[in-house]
């Protein structure tokens, strides 16, 4: 596995010849060996339409390619880093939360409307996730940033999990998400409990939640 957690906020990645790695631009803290960093403007695969989509949605995180031989330390903004290992399944994550990931993972952009139609778009807007989200698929590891540590909650068909949209970090597996509203007359008169919108995740997989309600 290329990622090793140094402490809760720094990860060490091993780069070998022929193995690429992507990381958020400017997230390198230190490196050993012969490593080169090249900015990639195209950012991922998926053709011209996907690129236009990312541009339009602001889901184009400035990434850089890390190549060579050696070890690199990554960290950003003092945020906690969680390493998520993927074994063939898909991880859904916001682009600005990605710290670094294996080059072998297939990168893509998902249109929120593709899952749930109009409600999916409404959900993206309400939760501040935007209309697009990044997907990573394949075998490899991903380092994801979160404010104040990450809690992994398993999602099973019998046990759906409800998450505060502001505390949501990422999810993987075969999980459907749906915006559930608990809007009552109290919210209308400004006496809401602050928990009017929740993401309901059902299916089988896992959801990652941060210990804070602040976006990155």
């Amino acid at each position: 596995m290329p990622f090793r957690e140094i402490n809760s906020k720094v990860v060490e990645a091993t780069v070998a010849p022929g193995q690429r790695m992507f990381s958020q631009r400017g997230a390198m803290l230190a490196y050993r060996g012969d490593v080169t960093f090249t900015p990639n403007t195209a950012g991922g695969q998926g053709g011209v339409m996907a690129m236009l989509g990312r541009r339009a949605a602001g889901e184009a995180a400035p990434l850089m390619t890390v190549e060579g031989e050696g070890t690199v330390l990554f960290g950003h903004g003092g945020h906690h880093v969680q390493v998520i290992r993927l074994a063939g399944d898909t991880l859904y994550v916001e682009a600005d939360r990605l710290l670094a990931f294996d080059g072998s993972l297939e990168q893509g952009t998902m249109f929120m409307g593709a899952q749930g139609g109009v409600m999916g778009m409404v959900r993206g807007q309400v939760t501040g996730q935007g209309l697009f989200t990044t997907t990573l698929k394949g075998h490899g590891a991903v380092a994801v940033m979160a404010h104040g540590g990450v809690l992994e909650l398993p999602v099973t068909p019998e046990r759906p999990v409800h998450v505060d949209p502001q505390a949501y970090v990422a999810h993987h597996g075969d999980v459907r998400n749906r915006l559930s509203t608990a809007l009552g007359w109290r919210d209308m008169v400004g006496r809401g409990s602050g928990e009017a919108f929740q993401l309901e995740l059902s299916g089988s997989g896992a959801v990652y939640v941060q210990a804070s309600e602040e976006k990155l």
Binding site: G149, L153, P160, A167, R191, G192, S193, G194, V209, E213
Partner: peptide, 29 residues
Amino acid sequence: VLAVDVTGDAVRAKNGSMVAYEGRMAFKK
């Protein structure tokens, strides 16, 4: 993170401090 197991009873929490829940929950200010 604080996890609270509730079985039909009520707890009082700071407004908007819920990050996730399993099961059925109702929030009232």
